[in-house]
Design a protein around this nucleic acid. Structure first.
Length: 523
DNA sequence: GTCCCACACCCCC
DNA sequence: ATCCGACCCATTCGG
DNA sequence: CCGAATGGGTCGGATGGGGGTGTGGGAC
């Protein structure tokens, strides 16, 4: 469930609970890099004459579960938080605050919990000895629980099954269930194309386009009902009535139930052209009526996990694909199979790769750090994020383009932080063009150049790069910007210009509305 | 009293 | 989304 | 032959742009 509580709500509650201003709380937060530590430092209940009852797990849990919505709901939620904070002692304010933010920062998270669950089940095993061939029961049990959880992500069911029948029978007692989303298979990025091709020399492997849309898992049950889940298992059924209609129409007659893995992509059916993710994301999300849909989508199907009452999860991809192809009719702009090849020829594979990325594996720009934000958690004490800009020759100004905080080793981050700290200026210069919305904690003189890689350029409401060159009042920003290296050989005026940024944006294939469909059919 | 906008939150990548 | 660092484990290297 | 080095995989926790939705406050 969504708590609807974020940083601001917690800051408000904290401020009121300990009689400090929000400004003070924020100042301390920048210092400590963790609202939990701020709560801890506030020693909330020390001065209270009459302490509220000690907190119990049940009390905290029930308070979290109190669903508030509508008028005054924020006020009510804030009061819930205040009452918990007031009753908290010792380390409780720290972990309460972190729980509310869903980030415990204890170096253990879901995968560790699953391991622990499996190991605990071994130690309290009443049901059966581990099978004799098992070398390390606790490691094996951890594996089993993780595996089972990926197929049936439901703690209620798993814990009950562990208690009643033990961990060794878990794969039998907890099974894939139509209607319950399966953990998605995820891709891993490679670091070098040539290295990877070498690794697979003379080994047959399969390649497939990765489409830029939204992952979806479509469950079609025997009774004809449909559920659509996102990558993180959110129920998106009511967001995609058109997708539900398409699969129901395009499944073959013999198909009575299935689970399909696919990418939903915005699509212009008249031009038979894939549209950028930014277009897809403007679709309404809740209780969408088919008649209100303005952005059409095409389903790019790439896997089939369940068919006619049979799980295919343990079959290999070749077989799952065979079933996929045999179970659906393709219809351009509605449902298509992801473009793929299977080959053991490096040349062929390379060609397929080149076609798929159309020679744009990511853009690299040289940009100028002009501001920074204090880091959080492990990054407390250094800057966590830098505000970057590009130079515009027409207006002789630096225009903000994005923030970045990744790609640095810890050492590099410390060095950059120290170097730029000495270039701090009290306020932005007159030749920095930036939106009020983005206010870095500190500003810097424009003194150096950083090479930054991005996976895409986007139209932005908050960044100013190349404003007026592509859109009259919107600038350009970057998707997934990360530092590649500092460029000591370059000066700020010698970096990627806003003209070049505009060109890069226009060069992105999908931004050409009138390109022929032949050019685009393999996107 | 109504309408609109900013902001916070959450989710997508 | 991308990336880094810590950690674990299996394999390879080098004395 | 054995310990050290290396490499791959997993996990957690840093960090990015951007859009829809709901709430609350300000404008009218």
């Amino acid at each position: 469930m969504e708590l609807g509580i974020g940083k601001s709500s917690i800051v408000k509650a904290l401020a009121e609970t300990c009689g400090r201003s929000q400004k003070e709380i924020y100042r301390q937060f920048k210092d400590l890099g963790d609202l939990g530590l701020v709560a801890q430092a506030s020693r909330l209940s020390q001065s209270m004459l009459l302490k509220p009852d000690a907190l119990t797990v049940t009390k905290v849990f029930n308070t979290f579960l109190a669903k508030e919505s509508g008028q005054n709901s924020r006020e009510k939620k804030k009061n819930h938080i205040k009452s918990l904070l007031l009753a908290a002692t010792d380390c409780e304010p720290l972990y309460l605050t972190r729980l509310l933010q869903k980030e415990l920062r204890i170096g253990a998270s879901e995968q560790t919990l699953l391991s622990a669950l499996g190991q605990a089940a071994v130690y309290s095993e009443e049901h059966a000895e581990p099978p004799p061939e098992i070398q390390s029961p606790s490691e094996e049990a951890a594996k089993i629980v993780k595996q089972v959880y990926s197929v049936l992500p439901d703690y209620d069911k798993i814990v009950c099954a562990l208690l009643s029948d033990g961990v060794w029978r878990l794969p039998t007692t907890c099974n894939f269930t139509p209607g319950v989303p399966v953990g998605p298979m995820l891709s891993n990025a490679i670091t070098s194309v040539s290295k990877t091709l070498n690794k697979f020399q003379n080994v047959g492997f399969t390649c497939e386009y990765k489409y830029d849309g939204e992952r979806a898992q479509i469950h079609y049950m025997e009774n004809g009902s449909i559920e659509i889940y996102s990558k993180k298992a959110e129920r998106n059924t009511k967001k995609f009535p058109d997708v539900a209609a398409a699969v129901a129409r395009l499944k073959k007659i013999a198909v009575s139930s299935f689970v399909m893995d696919c990418e939903i992509v915005a699509y212009d059916r008249a031009k038979q052209k894939i549209l950028p993710l930014q277009v897809l994301s403007t679709r309404a999300r809740k209780n969408v009526a088919a008649s209100d849909i303005k952005i059409d989508v095409c389903i790019f199907a790439f896997d089939l996990l369940y068919l006619n009452g049979q799980a295919l999860l343990k079959e290999n991809l070749q077989i799952r694909r065979k079933h996929l192809y045999a179970s659906f009719e393709e219809e351009s702009g509605f449902l298509q199979f992801a473009t793929s090849i299977t080959s053991n020829n490096a040349e062929e594979i390379k060609k397929f790769l080149d076609e798929s990325v159309n020679a744009s594996l990511g853009d690299t720009l040289d940009l100028v750090p002009i501001g920074a934000f204090h880091g959080c958690g492990q990054r407390a004490g250094v800057y966590g994020t830098f505000l970057l800009a590009c130079y515009d020759n027409d207006n002789e100004e630096f225009q903000t383009i994005c923030k970045t905080g990744i790609g640095f080793s810890e050492k590099e981050l410390e060095k950059c932080s120290a170097r730029l700290r000495s270039k701090m200026i009290p306020r932005p210069t007159t030749y920095y063009r930036h939106a009020e919305k983005i206010k870095p904690d500190v500003w810097f003189e424009a003194t150096e150049a950083w090479e930054v890689k991005a996976s895409d350029l986007t139209i932005s409401n908050v960044y100013q790069a190349a404003v007026d060159k592509v859109d009259s009042d919107k600038g350009i920003s970057l998707r997934c910007p990360r530092l590649v290296r500092v460029r000591p050989d370059k000066v700020p005026e010698d970096t990627t210009s806003s003209e070049q940024v505009a060109e890069m944006f226009k060069d992105q294939k999908q931004n050409h509305p009138n390109k022929s469909k032949t050019t685009n059919k393999n996107e």
